[in-house]
């Protein structure tokens, strides 16, 4: 920062015309800003505050304490085993569900990208007419409520559902398959379907923006189609793909509705625990602490992920 620009800024602060303009800017921004503060910042602050309180029977003890967090990390000499992994915690449930949720979300994200990428590729490179129509077609699942879509998966995967009836009709099975519903796989399938459209659009945009002459140049210089894809298309579409995977991964970790409806007893996720703590165990402070820790872990993992793939480099290259 040079001194001259600092002086300029100081001058600008005093100039009433610029000041007014700036205020106008904030004025136009304010609906969104007010909404963000009211609907996001304040609730999160309330959550942070609450996580330092404790629940004592029906009474909420408002004195500041780190007890909730201490409970979450307190160790025990007798580890609890879950899927063969030892969890050396006195209260291992949040840690286990956190790990499980991350695993399930990761699986859903990978599935979503695997489905969305070819679709976006097709739209960007193969569809030449009526692109808008194709985009509208992709958003059609969003015309029904999310709850209805989850319920329809219950019907598709159910005991007497579409898949089982179909297979039975074809004579491939005698007894309905029971591993389809009420387990983590059902949750991952449902989540993948629900989030695919969110992933297609950012990937599509980044593929669409690729300069076609680069592809021609690669071919002219002797790249095979496959090599061309890996050297030009994939790297240039990476920002969109990364954005899409974050868009899917972050919200699905804390999902609650999907595991509640298709997960059964084994398909619960960390969101289910938060719900249980708030609405059944009547321990809102603990629920708040679990939510905060969950947010921090996700933020850390996303940061780590972006650092590992060198997101900064990617962005500068695109610029």
């Amino acid at each position: 920062m040079t001194t001259s620009s600092a002086i300029e800024r100081a001058g600008a602060r005093r100039d009433p015309a610029i000041l007014r303009k700036r205020l106008a800017g904030y004025g136009l921004l304010s609906p969104a800003l007010v909404l963000m503060i009211l609907m996001l910042a304040l609730p999160v602050l309330a959550l942070v505050l609450m996580s330092f309180w404790t629940q004592n029977g029906f009474e909420l003890d408002r004195s500041f304490t780190l007890d909730n967090y201490r409970q979450l990390v307190a160790t025990s000499d007798e580890p609890t085993y879950w899927m063969g992994i030892p969890f050396p915690f006195a209260y291992p449930v949040p840690a286990i569900l956190m790990l499980k949720s991350l695993g399930m979300s990761l699986a859903a994200t990978v599935a979503v990208i695997a489905v969305a990428y070819p679709m976006a590729y097709f739209m960007a490179f193969r569809v030449t007419h009526n692109k808008a129509l194709w985009i509208i077609l992709i958003t059609i699942p969003f015309w029904t409520s999310y709850l209805l879509r989850v319920f329809s998966w219950k019907i598709v995967l159910g005991f007497n559902g579409a898949i089982n009836s179909g297979l039975k009709y074809l004579g491939l099975i005698d007894e309905p398959l029971e591993f389809l519903l009420y387990n983590p796989t059902a949750v991952v399938i449902t989540l993948s379907h629900a989030w695919v459209a969110f992933a297609i659009l950012p990937i599509y945009v980044s593929l669409e923006k690729i300069d076609r002459t680069l592809l021609e140049a690669a071919s002219d210089l002797g790249d095979s189609r496959l090599k061309r894809f890996f050297r030009i298309t994939l790297p240039l579409s990476a920002p969109g793909t990364i954005a899409a995977s974050l868009l899917v991964f972050i919200p699905t970790v804390g999902d609650y509705v999907t595991p509640a409806l298709v997960g059964g007893p084994g398909g619960t996720m960390i969101g289910s625990l938060v719900q249980d703590l708030f609405l059944k165990q009547n321990n809102a402070p603990m629920g708040a602490a679990v939510s905060i820790v969950m947010m921090l872990i996700i933020a850390f993992l996303v940061g780590l992920f972006l650092w590992a793939i060198g997101y900064r480099k990617l962005r500068s290259r695109r610029a």
Partner: peptide, 9 residues
């Protein structure tokens, strides 16, 4: 009971 349910593998 909440914990028991959560621990299912």
């Amino acid at each position: 009971w909440g914990d028991t349910k959560a621990l299912k593998g």
